[in-house]
């Protein structure tokens, strides 16, 4: 594997709060890519739940957060198609690797490959990412 699972987030004591946008600018289904200190981060509103991922695909370093967010065919025990994770799967715009925005894990190798995720907080009507 040339990709590794989500590294540990920076220790709480060293993280800085970075403004992403007012809540009103990030409705469900919206996203915003922002600078957060030395990181570029994609912040997504998944049906009211905010998720933030490093904007670097672990595969070929593509700007993964610019890719489409949609559902996918769920990993299946049988030879059958089961659509699911609607609105939760980020697909890299370069090579199509899929990642769950819930936890950053890749669909093809969730144990070993995923996106680096950041914590998101909402305070005083603003969305912040901790990085």
């Amino acid at each position: 594997m040339n990709a590794t699972l989500t590294p540990a987030a920076p220790a709480a004591s060293t993280r800085t709060k970075h403004l992403v946008a007012p809540v009103a600018e990030l409705p469900p289904g919206a996203r915003k890519i922002v600078k957060a200190g030395r990181f570029e981060v994609g912040v997504f509103n998944l049906k009211g739940e905010y998720k933030a991922a490093l904007n670097i695909c672990p595969h070929a370093l593509a700007p993964v957060c610019a890719g489409p967010v949609r559902g996918t065919m769920l990993p299946a025990e049988k030879v059958e198609y089961n659509w699911g994770m609607d609105g939760e799967v980020l697909s890299c715009p370069w090579h199509g690797w899929e990642f769950s925005l819930k936890d950053g894990r890749s669909l093809h190798d969730p144990k070993r490959c995923g996106l680096k995720m950041f914590e998101v907080v909402v305070e005083d009507g603003n969305v912040y990412v901790l990085a």
Binding site: M73, P75, E77, Y81, H95, L107, H108, D109
Partner: peptide, 15 residues
Amino acid sequence: NWKALRSTVPWITRA
């Protein structure tokens, strides 16, 4: 190719 196109063969759950 499977890493990118896995969703077309979702029953392939490992390499």
